[in-house]
């Protein structure tokens, strides 16, 4: 089966959340987290194609997802892959 070229190009463009700079936004693409952490983040609103904005970089970092502000350990943030959307307006 041949992979969808659009998906492949998106996958290539994806970066871990920790790679985004402060003020930069990204669209949730995938999460390499398993089990408990994944379910907690989903329940906290980090689902679907949520838009994530970096409020504070480093370890731990602060991100804004819709109306929720989350503090994430570096080990969690580095497992979240996002499609960069550039700086917020």
């Amino acid at each position: 089966m041949t992979a969808d070229p659009a998906v492949v190009s998106e996958q290539v463009a994806c970066v871990p959340l920790t790679h985004l700079a402060v003020g930069e936004r990204g669209r949730l693409w995938a999460s390499n987290l398993a089990g408990h952490e994944r379910r907690v983040l989903e329940a906290m609103g980090l689902v679907g194609e949520s838009e994530i904005r970096i409020i504070k970089g480093g370890e731990p970092c602060i991100v804004q997802v819709n109306s929720t502000r989350l503090a994430l350990a570096g080990t969690v943030a580095s497992q979240i892959l996002v499609m960069p959307l550039g700086k917020s307006a």
Binding site: R69, A71, L72, A73
Partner: peptide, 10 residues
């Protein structure tokens, strides 16, 4: 250790 995932409420 369960890594930090906490909400920062308004």
């Amino acid at each position: 250790a369960r890594p930090m995932v906490i909400e920062l409420p308004s």
